[in-house]
Simulated scan of single mutants.
Amino acid sequence: MKAVGFTTSLAITEPASFIDVDIDKPVPAGHDLLVKVRAVSVNPVDFKIRQNSAKDTVLDQPKIIGWDAVGVVEAVGSDVSLFSVGDAVYYAGDITRSGSNADYQLIDERIVGRKPATLSDEAAAAMPLTALTAWEIFFDRMRLSADRDRDKTLLIIGGAGGVGSIAIQLAKKLLGLRVIATASRPETIDWCRQMGADQVVNHRNLVEDVRNAGFRQVDYIVDFVDTNAYWDAMAELIKPQGHIASITGSATPVALNKLKSKSVSFSWELMFTRSTYQTDDMIEQHHILNRVADLLDEGVLQTTITQTLQGLTADTLKQAHAQLESGTTIGKLVISF
Rank of each mutant, 00 (worst) to 15 (best):
I64Q: 02
D151W: 10
T276M: 14
G327F: 10
K63Y: 07
A251G: 14
R291C: 08
R148A: 15
E284I: 15
V70F: 06
E325W: 04
G162W: 11
P44A: 00
W67C: 02
A124S: 10
T96F: 10
V45H: 07
L82Q: 03
A88Y: 06
D190W: 06
V225T: 13
Q105H: 08
T188N: 12
V58R: 11
I330L: 08
G86N: 10
S78Q: 13
V163E: 01
F6L: 09
Q194N: 03
Q310P: 05
G159K: 03
A245H: 12
D108I: 02
Q241V: 07
I288M: 12
K318G: 14
V334S: 00
I180H: 07
R216I: 05
A123T: 09
E298F: 13
Y90G: 00
A39W: 00
T276N: 06
K152H: 04
S246E: 10
S17I: 01
L132Q: 13
V89G: 01
I305S: 10
T153R: 12
E74R: 05
T328H: 15
K152P: 01
T153G: 04
L82N: 03
R38A: 08
T133S: 14
E284Y: 14
T7C: 09
H203E: 01
Q302A: 11
V112M: 00
F266D: 05
R110A: 01
S78H: 10
V42M: 13
F337D: 06
F138Q: 07
D226V: 02
A54D: 06
T182M: 13
Q319A: 12
S336C: 09
E208R: 15
A320N: 03
A124C: 02
Q323P: 01
V334E: 00
A117E: 11
D68T: 03
R204L: 10
K48S: 05
K172G: 09
G158W: 12
V254N: 07
L132A: 08
L295M: 02
T329K: 13
P128I: 02
V200G: 05
L237Y: 05
T313G: 09
K262N: 04
D315P: 08
L317Y: 09
